[in-house]
Design a protein around this nucleic acid. Structure first.
Length: 256
DNA sequence: ATGCCGTGGAAACCACGA
């Protein structure tokens, strides 16, 4: 089974690229982030015509997340990350597919650092870690998937020294990612590509993609029972080179 | 060293992204 994640940077603005990629790679499960569309403007019909059932949590202008399933029953969809009833951002949705709890997340960017946006990022991470603890102790098969807006290590950014003041590269958020791994979550891309440069995002300007000046910020974290079935992981890097592409590339894993 | 590009929504610019 192939599971993928893709920050689409506007699900309607980049719909042709999304549909082309779905047709080309036909993943079984897809997590989408940055829909940038209100609930009623999600392109449900086009996604259905491509063969996918969908659940989503939209928001006007910004954020927005979705889970797509191709030929596998999707149940118990639950939007929202617990822990703060005042948080109105659409950044999190869970659903169950084939016995796996799929958690699709779009973690706050947090820039500029320091500041209230970075504080929001830290508080959001705290809530995510509480939910992650719950899911891990439940013993079920769980995947935390999406745009974490965290650069885990120096190898995950083209020039680490340029990112030391950036919210994506602060010790505070990198330590949180490390803590999740230490608790038993497997970083699928890093585990299957040890010591290799693997990017998932390239800026639109300065020909970042052409220069391969990228970041690894889209991640799969797997609970032990799923990690044991992990067979492959990679990035559909060529999609970033398509006309009218998102600034992220799709990322995928294969599980038994 | 830097939103240099791009999206969405409102208003012919602004907020936001990483």
């Amino acid at each position: 089974m192939r599971i993928a994640t893709y920050n689409v940077n506007g699900v309607n603005g980049h719909l042709p690229v999304l549909l082309r990629w779905l047709e080309e790679t036909k993943p079984d499960i897809v997590c989408l982030q940055e829909l940038k569309a209100p609930q009623e403007k999600f392109p449900e019909e086009a996604i259905a015509a491509a063969g996918y059932q969908a659940v989503w949590h939209g928001q006007k202008s910004w954020n927005g997340v979705a889970i797509l399933s191709r030929g596998h029953v999707m149940t118990e969809a639950q939007p929202g990350l617990p822990g703060d009833p005042d948080d109105v951002h659409s950044r999190y949705i869970e659903a169950t597919i084939e016995g796996m709890r799929i958690c699709c997340l779009y973690l706050p960017n947090g820039n500029p650092f320091p500041g209230p946006k970075y504080d929001y990022k830290l508080s959001w991470i705290k809530r995510l870690m509480l939910r992650a603890d719950e899911l891990l102790t439940s013993g079920q098969q769980v995947l935390l998937i999406g745009d974490f807006n965290i650069i885990p290590e120096d190898i995950d950014v083209y020039k680490p020294e340029r990112w030391v003041n950036d919210a994506l590269f602060q010790p505070g958020v990198r330590d949180a990612f490390k803590a999740l791994v230490a608790k038993g979550w497997t970083d699928a891309l890093r585990t299957l590509n040890p010591g290799e440069v693997v990017y998932t995002f390239w800026d639109y300007f300065r020909d970042a993609y052409g220069r391969n000046a990228g970041l690894r910020i889209d991640h799969f974290l797997m609970s032990p029972s799923v990690a044991g079935k992990l067979k492959a992981a990679g990035v559909d890097k060529h999609v970033r080179g398509w006309e009218k592409s998102s600034d992220h590339a799709p990322v995928w894993v294969e599980v038994e």
